[in-house]
Design a binder for these strands. Structure first.
Lengths: 190, 190
DNA sequence: TGCCATATAGTCGGTTCCGACTAATAGGGA
DNA sequence: TCCCTATTAGTCGGAACCGACTATATGGCA
């Protein structure tokens, strides 16, 4: 059946418009404020394209075009009833069904052999250090928001990525250790 | 500095051409044979675009154009010395430095609240079941290849994704349980 | 008051990506 | 021998995506 707009940025736009009408630039700054800059890739070009696509399919619609002083016009959008329905259905589907996602790291790991054992172990250990830093950052962010009294649910995706990073970190360290110990044998032809 | 070709499919192409010269269609079928269809998104259009981009930057080059019977011409490519160097350098970088990747599930989780507690828990439990199946599939694939006497390193990325899926599964189950038990409070305005 | 950094708001052209479509041949069964 | 399907091989137009660039206004400080 294949949804009309697949870009996840569209999900963010719909989510924001369910709260209140906004113009695109405001969407971008609101998302950044809420620490969603690492959940959604907020690129101005993509954002305006996405908003247009959503409008074309009547998931959102322009409600007014204001001009303040000599600044460029701002077109304010609101969600439609169709948009609200699609938002929830899409969300449901995204949570229920894992979809293939081809991350760069998996691609690289599939050719790990080409680095040779020493360089591969080095690289994995360096990655592990980077991941540890990011986990620290996530913990700080989580502590801050909870400290401000915000409900945990508002940062639930940060809890998830923290968990995922931890698992990746564990794997990187274990695999590096296996390479160092020789328990992960290295074929000659690499 | 920003690499010339970023598509990970280019990494797969280079990896294959380091073994021996091939024409694009052969690359695609070889990758599928080796169970790399879930590591790289092998789309004919993308593949031919990628090969062209690699050729433009002299990481690979056409070595011959053969025509058998009335079939379309097949252009066979080989890697260049530059291509070999870039391959290893790129690989190294991809392993060492985690890069931001915006997966759809994270986007959805960030709006989990919109599903309401019951539907959210349902959806997470269903995802957990799907993940369990995939983990089973990965285990089967791993057992088969090891059974055939292939070195573990040839399927190392499957070990990684298996680990990542397991972590995701654990999180999904734990979070669903927290929602069911009420220990993850649900704000009213969602 | 002159200047610079930052915030506001969005445009534009190019690259990448996608998947439906084309087209020929080989193999197998009725 | 005719037809159907699978395999081989690749093309093409459009959609999505990106990020550098434009342009105005505001605030602070030297």
């Amino acid at each position: 059946m294949s949804r009309k707009v697949r870009n996840t940025l569209a999900l963010a736009v719909l989510g924001l418009l369910l709260e209140r009408p906004m113009h695109p630039y405001e969407m971008a700054s609101t998302l950044r404020e809420r620490y969603k800059g690492s959940t959604f890739k907020i690129n101005p070009g993509s954002l305006y394209d996405t908003v247009e696509a959503l409008a074309k399919h009547r998931w959102i619609e322009p409600v007014e075009t204001v001009r303040e002083g000599n600044r460029p016009e701002r077109t304010v959008y609101a969600h439609t009833e169709l948009g609200r329905q699609e938002f929830v259905a899409w969300l449901d589907e995204l949570v229920r069904e894992p979809v293939a996602e081809y991350p760069k790291f998996v691609a690289a790991v599939s050719y790990l052999g080409a680095l040779g054992p020493d360089r591969a172990a080095d690289a994995l250990e360096e990655r592990a250090r980077h991941l540890a830093e990011r986990i620290g950052g996530a913990d700080t962010a989580l502590a801050e928001t909870v400290g401000k009294g915000a409900p945990r649910l508002f940062m639930i995706e940060v809890e998830f990525v923290r968990h995922a990073w931890q698992a990746e970190l564990d794997w990187a360290r274990d695999t590096a250790a296996e390479i160092r110990s020789g328990s992960l044998p290295w074929p000659k032809n690499f």
